[in-house]
Design a protein around this nucleic acid. Sequence first.
RNA 1: GGCUGGGUAGCUCAGCUGGUUAGAGCGGUGGAUUCAUAACCCACAGGUCGGCGGUUCAAGUCCGCCCCCAGCUACCA
Length: 604
Amino acid sequence: MPRILITSALPYINGIKHLGTLAGSMLPADVYARFQRSRGNETLYICATDEHGTPTELAAAEAGVAPSDFCAEMHKVQYDLGRKFGLSWDHFGRSSSPQNHRLTQRFAQTLWEAGFIEERVTQQVYSLADKRFLPDRYVIGTCPHCGYTAARGDQCENCTRVLDPADLIAPRSAISGSTEIEIRDSKHLFLRQSLFAPKLREWIEGKKGEWPLLVTSIALKWLDEGLQDRGITRDLAWGVPVNAMDWGANPEGKLPDLAGLADKVFYVWFDAPIEYIAATWEWADAVAAEAGLEPQDVNWERWWRLPEASDVTYVEFMGKDNVPFHTVGFPCTLIGVNERRDGEGRWSVVNNSPWKLVDQLKGFNWLDYYGGRFSTSQGRGVFMDTALELLPPDYWRWWITANVPESQDSSFVWEQFQAQINADLADVLGNFVNRILKFTETRFDGAVPADGLDGPLEQKLAKDVAAKLAELTEHMEAREFRKSTTALRQLWVLGNQYLTEAAPWTALKTDPARAAVAVRTGLNLVALFAKVSEPFIPFTAEIIAQAVGESFPGRWPQPDAALDILPPGRPVKAPEVLFRKIEDDQVAEWIARFGGAEPVPQPA
RNA sequence: GGCUGGGUAGCUCAGCUGGUUAGAGCGGUGGAUUCAUAACCCACAGGUCGGCGGUUCAAGUCCGCCCCCAGCUACCA
């Protein structure tokens, strides 16, 4: 049986995520994970918080707490919110975990000893007032090209020109505003990505047509522009320490400069992808602890290391901003650990249990808010915590999945959200479940009727359902989420069409057996909908399953037996209204609260 | 500036290697129905496929130029 390993891009620890983050990785990954489990495939869905880097240190300082405490608290917040949205992580780890420290350091050591990491001295801006090195964008000043006075050290937002902090006129710290800044030398480790360029190109070229165009295009863009070596350490206090005292000599016989690397931590983008692996290790430790076993009794490497993992399909989900790090940076790390390169550029596998590279990479564009970006500072857009105060998670899950930015940026618009939720969930699905169950209660004593035999109408329905179910299954296998939601909605529509045609309320007067067939068929449709809707709207799917006495979560149905689920005589019961409609005055209120098409008027 | 992606009905989007009258949902209009959350079901409305030029028997689909939107441009993550 195939195994499916799923990771979604790690949400950054710095604050509560908005709907775009949910759309860009976590929710599609969850829908896919639920589908795969429902298909009976052994599935592991891994996610974690991405905790290191300058923004974390600054946010913790602002909150007046240590970064470790800040992260521990925010991890819990993000975990709870994810669970409330029904995200079915097998494990939601932390990139600051001991497991990730160990793996990151071990990988770095291997890369050093293989000659894939080298030391370089770089010039970095240091702020005396802040007592820290400043990343380029944390230095602001006047743009030498356009005179904009709040240009960042990496790029001027006004004229869009790419800058170097040294270009800025009157540079100052973006943190404190202090002009007491200077350029200092700092020793750093660089991952020699340039050595990997030909190998990566061959790998990416082979994924053309298989991965989304967006993904291969971004990856090839980086290769076409010439892959540069990348600094993988930073001058920060919070992170995975380089800790190179046990490292051996590199191929040139050189040992690392322990003094020069003493206060360095790894760059967040070096350790964050490794956390996918480390979080799997965390998962195994947690499973072992729960079962009263020793940690080594749960084998987590079978998900990651060949040949044991040869039956694993590894699927990554992420927004387009993450694509370079997953198609270039992380693969360099893994290939560098797995293989060696000789002087002629020939590669050979040295590790007898190499780490697995990604098989399927699903990348997404941006979800905007009325055509603009979500903005924390301006209070523009909807965030995960407030979303759940307004409406149940399934409303959000459905809309986001149906509008996920697969081929281009898409927009969240309240009016459209309202229209789609009301039509799809309340009118089509919710009303269908309600109408057939209510009818069963009033006319068939609330039990699946046994009388009658299928006629042409039922045969046609079975054929249509089988075709649509096959289509849905195919789209889900291909991770085509918009098309999947379309197929699912069409499946729901088949239910309403059938019921209208079969009209048991009419048949009841002349041919009770015919009415019984229609009701039984309708109830089986309800059971079917519970099963196929579960990946998308799990909370409601469970209520629907219970209404017809089915266990939950159920197995993904086979097309030829999709309508043969419920035994005659099974008691059924109409649930409370599944989806309450979103009213116009609610929408008006939310637009006023969160912003809409019109710019939010500034108080005078 | 360079590069990447996108520009298809009022709105949100499908349209693979070029091939009969360009599709879906929403919104709109009309009809049917009464089991149901004033729900469902049926039908209709119609867009010079961003612009111009080219290749071809045939172009939304290929080529060239131009316009517009978004992103990236390596120390934000």
